[in-house]
Amino acid sequence: MPAGTSRTGARLRLAALLTPPLLWLGLAYLGSLAVLLLSAFWTTDSFTSDVVHIWNTDNFRTLLTDPVYRTITLRTLGVAVAVTLIDALLALPMAFFMARVASGRWRRALFVAVLMPLWAGYLVKAYAWRVMLGEHGLVNAVLAPLGLTGPGYGLPAAVLVLAYLWLPYMILPVFAALERLPTPHLEASADLGAGAWRTLRLVVLPAVRPALLAGSVFTFSLSLGDYLTVQIVGGRTQLLGNVIASQVTLDLPLAAALSAVPVVLVVCYLAAVRRAGALDSL
């Protein structure tokens, strides 16, 4: 077979292979995002609640001027940052134990324990927490002997449950990074006089930093976009997610404008993470 024909054949095969996913990405995924952004520039007839296709920027003006939306945005951002920090603090020792300390069977058991919640339905887990956080739930029952009460439903409960939900996304990349860390690096650090904390700070943390940042992309963006958890355990807390959800039926263009906020925040975060070099290995 001449080389030209074979190259054409290879091109055809490549095109056949890539066209369906590219179509999906282009039309279904990016397309719907574009429609969403477009509809943010429409408006709603306050009398009939119909969407009026008149190009204007009123929705964005509302977002920027109404202090309610600023408060909600800041609160949501705070939740995402808190969830990310909590997950990082929990994931580091957990992943370290899994990757460097635990022997075969322990490691497998912990791996399953980390992964299993990912296989369970999201709603099941959120409602399980609702039951546990209830007045007569498990959390209060456990804390009662200590003279404490649980957080009940509200903002702390939302942070707690979100941190629980997204923890595996932080543990897994950190675990992978710690497992790749060569043992001689730890030994060399100890050999040169560093105790455990120094070694952690000077050798281990720099080595897992990209993994922590990659994990934080998940915990941060998933927290920004979440709306069910806060509905289920958040009490009357308003975050961007559930505000958007409640506006969808009332004022679709405003909801669309609102949903641009987490998108912008996530893009900013990704840019920051990229500058920090965490995406170099992707």
Partner: peptide, 12 residues
Amino acid sequence: HTVFQDYALFPH
């Protein structure tokens, strides 16, 4: 102090 077989230099 030890000079390790694979040197174990800190890459970062």
